[in-house]
Computed example of a mutant assay.
Amino acid sequence: MGRTTPAAVAAADDDGQKTSWPEVVGWVTLNAALQISSDRPDVSTDFYSETTTLPTDYDANRVIIVADDRNVVVRTPVIG
């Protein structure tokens, strides 16, 4: 039997759908967005620079992707 890791628990909501994508850190933003859209076609992706203030409101239909100046994902994208 497989064991559930804390990362796997944190990466899924009560319905078993992904809520975070740690595997795309280091990817180009477009590729990350395509993976997220493939996993969760019901959410949109918003892109932010690592120097930009992130939104403070929670949106269950949004995944925030934070990237550096080379468009490489620098933080784990999460729903919110």
Rank of each mutant, 00 (worst) to 15 (best):
Thr19Asp: 11
Asp59Ile: 12
Val78Met: 13
Arg62Asp: 12
Gly16Leu: 07
Ser38Asp: 12
Thr51His: 06
Ser44Cys: 00
Leu34Glu: 08
Asp39His: 11
Val63Trp: 05
Asp42Val: 05
Thr29His: 00
Asp15Tyr: 05
Leu30Phe: 08
Pro22Asp: 04
Asn31His: 04
Thr52Tyr: 00
Pro55Gln: 09
Ser37His: 14
Gly80Thr: 11
Gln35Glu: 15
Asp68Phe: 02
Ile65Arg: 01
Thr53Trp: 02
Gln17Thr: 02
Gln17Trp: 02
Val72Thr: 15
Ala7Ile: 11
Met1Asn: 09
Leu30Pro: 00
Ser49Leu: 12
Ile65Ala: 00
Thr5Pro: 07
Lys18Glu: 04
Ser44Gln: 07
Asp59Arg: 15
Arg40Ser: 07
Ile79Trp: 01
Leu54Tyr: 07
Gly2Leu: 09
Thr53Val: 06
Thr4Ser: 07
Ile36Arg: 02
Ile79Asp: 02
Thr4Asp: 08
Arg75Val: 03
Ala33Phe: 06
Glu23Ser: 15
Thr52Gln: 11
Asp59Met: 12
Gln17Leu: 09
Ser44His: 02
Ser37Cys: 05
Tyr48Trp: 10
Gly16Glu: 03
Val28Arg: 00
Asp14Gln: 10
Thr5Arg: 08
Asn31Met: 04
Asp15Met: 06
Ser44Ala: 06
Ala10His: 08
Ala10Trp: 06
Arg3Tyr: 09
Pro41Cys: 12
Ala8Pro: 00
Trp21Cys: 03
Asp68Lys: 03
Thr51Leu: 08
Ala32His: 04
Pro55Ala: 12
Asp42Trp: 05
Gly2Thr: 07
Val9Asn: 04
Arg70Ala: 15
Val28Cys: 00
Thr56Glu: 14
Gln35Ser: 12
Ser38Ile: 01
Glu23Asp: 15
Gly2Gln: 08
Val78Thr: 15
Pro41Gly: 11
Ala12Trp: 00
Ile64Phe: 07
Asp68Tyr: 02
Gln17Cys: 01
Ala33Gln: 14
Ser49Glu: 08
Tyr58Gly: 13
Pro22Arg: 06
Trp27Gln: 02
Gln35Asp: 13
Asp69Val: 12
Ile36Ser: 04
Asn31Leu: 06
Ser49Gln: 11
Arg62Ile: 12
Val72Gln: 14
Ser49Gly: 14
Ile64Arg: 13
Tyr48Cys: 04
Ile64Leu: 14
Thr45Asp: 01
Asp42Ala: 10
Pro55His: 11
Glu50Asp: 11
Asp15Glu: 13
Val28Ile: 00
Val72Asp: 09
Ala60Met: 10
Asp59Thr: 13
Ile36Leu: 06
Asp15Ile: 01
Arg3Ser: 10
Tyr48Leu: 05
Arg62His: 09
Tyr58Phe: 15
Val73Ala: 10
Trp21Phe: 12
Asp46Gln: 15
Ile36Pro: 03
Ala67Ser: 13
Val72Tyr: 10
Asp57Asn: 15
Arg62Pro: 01
Asp14Trp: 05
Gln17Gly: 01
Val24Asn: 10
Glu50Leu: 03
Val78Pro: 03
